[in-house]
């Protein structure tokens, strides 16, 4: 169906991305145009933000996405983690459309869903349209107090077909991690081995809305918390899907919660079109299975390629 894919040894896009990173280092002269110093403008922004928050003067969408809060409070703390700690390099950002619905499908790993946070920060900060990725999360996230409310405010919603279809048909960029807890909570020895891709619900949602599927491969997240054990009894006690044991957690307590500074690559593959299969494509289980496999295979092959190109876990 998909046929053999040609995988270039030297991806021109990636080289271009590397080159463009050097260009970015040049400081922007636009900062000093009006007479007011930078700190004062920032203070004014901060104050007007505080006033908006106190008065409740902001808009949220029907999913509970609070753009004002996300851009001013939730996103900024991710910047040092993204730029300094993991030194994330994104490849193929141009595969994400400037507007309109699309579905990003990525591999999941790392015990805690930092890969999801980094991907969404990467798109918001580096994509020319700085789009907000709306992720589909597990039921557990939304059941948990505080976390559930935060997830909704930052634009996430429950992983179910009605929500996915509604988001994509209203032109949003949707992110999904179909491996779920099987992927994020897999032992370290299984790193970069894709788990089962759910039941392919995301593919039928994309087929129904005709949104392209963008396979996304994340390298580096597997090494942040190498999970060498799983205490089932504690997991059951707290109602978690797993209770991770890493070389430093729970041995060093809260210090063990610091992720290892691995070097990350996030590659967005070529969009897979879903609007070419006709009207009732979503009701054809064979097509859904095949597309799911195609997406999974693409991600897996990209992961292997990125891994062979990586010389060192921490230096890249």
């Amino acid at each position: 169906m998909a046929g053999a894919r040609v995988i270039p040894l030297h991806d021109p896009e990636r080289d271009a991305a590397r080159r463009s990173r050097h260009v970015e280092v040049v400081p922007e002269p636009a900062q000093q145009q009006s007479g007011t110093p930078d700190w004062e403008r920032r203070l004014a922004d901060l104050l007007s933000f505080a006033r908006r928050r106190i008065a409740g003067d902001y808009q949220i969408d029907e999913f509970g996405f609070d753009r004002d809060l996300t851009e001013n409070v939730l996103m900024p703390p991710l910047k040092p983690l993204y730029e300094k700690w993991f030194r994330v390099e994104t490849i193929g950002l141009s595969n994400i459309p400037m507007a309109g619905g699309a579905l990003i499908v990525a591999n999941h790993s790392g015990t805690l869903p930092l890969d999801a946070l980094m991907t969404s920060y990467g798109i918001a900060s580096e994509h020319p349209a700085s789009r907000h990725m709306r992720m589909l999360g597990a039921d557990l996230v939304f059941r948990t107090p505080v976390l559930g409310a935060l997830a909704r405010k930052s634009g996430q919603t429950l992983a179910c077909n009605p929500d996915a279809e509604r988001l994509m048909s209203s032109g949003e960029l949707v992110g999904v991690w179909p491996e779920g807890f099987k992927g994020i909570g897999k032992p370290f020895k299984d790193r970069y081995k894709l788990q089962r891709f759910g039941r392919g619900g995301f593919v039928s949602a994309a087929l129904k809305t005709g949104a392209p599927i963008i396979p996304c491969s994340i390298v580096g997240a597997e090494e942040i918390y190498p999970m060498i054990g799983d205490i089932k009894a504690l997991a059951r006690l707290f109602g978690f899907p797993y209770f991770p044991v890493t070389p430093f957690f729970p041995l060093l307590g809260p210090l063990g919660a610091i992720p290892l500074p691995s070097k990350w690559y996030i590659e967005f593959g070529e969009p897979i079109r879903t609007d070419v299969f006709g009207e009732n494509a979503a009701d054809d289980p064979m097509l859904v299975f095949n597309l799911t496999d195609q997406v999974r295979e693409t991600i897996q092959q990209t992961l292997y390629r990125l891994l062979t190109q990586r010389r060192n876990v921490f230096l890249g």
Binding site: D139, F142, R143, T157, L158, C160, P162
Partner: peptide, 12 residues
């Protein structure tokens, strides 16, 4: 509930 879709349509 937490397991509901974000927006209800009449057929749900």
């Amino acid at each position: 509930s937490s397991r509901d879709p974000a927006v209800f349509t009449e057929d749900m």
